[in-house]
Write a protein that binds this DNA or RNA. Sequence first.
DNA 1: ACCGCACATCAATGTCAACTGATGAGGTCC
DNA 2: GGACCTCATCAGTTGACATTGATGTGCGGT
Lengths: 144, 144
Amino acid sequence: MSIRDRLNFLFETVRPVGKPRYSVREVAEAIKRDQGFDISAAYINYICTGERENPGVQQIRALARFFGVPAAFLLDDGDQSHVTRELDQLRAAVEVTEKLRAADDAMDDPCVRVIALKARGLSPSHLKLVSTMLDQVREIEGLP
Amino acid sequence: MSIRDRLNFLFETVRPVGKPRYSVREVAEAIKRDQGFDISAAYINYICTGERENPGVQQIRALARFFGVPAAFLLDDGDQSHVTRELDQLRAAVEVTEKLRAADDAMDDPCVRVIALKARGLSPSHLKLVSTMLDQVREIEGLP
DNA sequence: ACCGCACATCAATGTCAACTGATGAGGTCC
DNA sequence: GGACCTCATCAGTTGACATTGATGTGCGGT
């Protein structure tokens, strides 16, 4: 599980509203705009393709902050059980954001990311609770 | 709280048995020996003095593993409350290792580091519990 | 069909991370 | 006091990272 794999995982799971995934240019521009940190779109692509294996910590932090996950996600520190547990939490958080996103198409990307960040710290049982609550809300409002 | 500060914090808190602190050369050689990863002593010193601000993730991981802490410690991801909480946990873990070290001077460095690593994941209340238990054990054995 | 836009990727460049070897300071043993 | 060792730090070099700009491709609009 390399940095390349983790970043691709983030690209595939944390998605903007209308599109299947963020573009590398979008990410680079958002990081520049929101964090004031310069990172080129080409370089993000380099990491995704595995052409750069040892990026600086500042680049990692910027990417992690954009996707709303702690920077430790992009670092495989060898503690695999811990890592996979975190990834499960991320999956759960993404699942919640998917529901939130479906519930309100007008919600823009930053909000989704913030909610993903807030949901991530929750225990799996609480995430499931929120998920169930959202299902009920959607049923009340007559949504699929 | 930069990487420089955090690394210096580790140097000052995680200490070998007889000496006040590890030398940069010791750390570099131990990383080479234990992890098979090459890092120069001069470069570790560069990070400590703040002369290098954006080290690669592999260097960070190697240093974190040597000191027995998760790599996230050396990454200030801006989430200050989270960070300080982690640092408090580290302080508590170090406190425990200090007690263990005092209780058994024959304990060598790797064990101390492993215990610090294991203690770190515990909640503050559990760390306090372990600490209290150690106090009682020491009292039973007639140690200060 | 053509144009324009956004996208990922490639090529070329410069800047800095990271190493090697040297230097000098502080300490210990003889 | 001098030889020796270890330490942190400096100077010089190499190589990788990271950027800019160019290229080709795919898609929606007119």
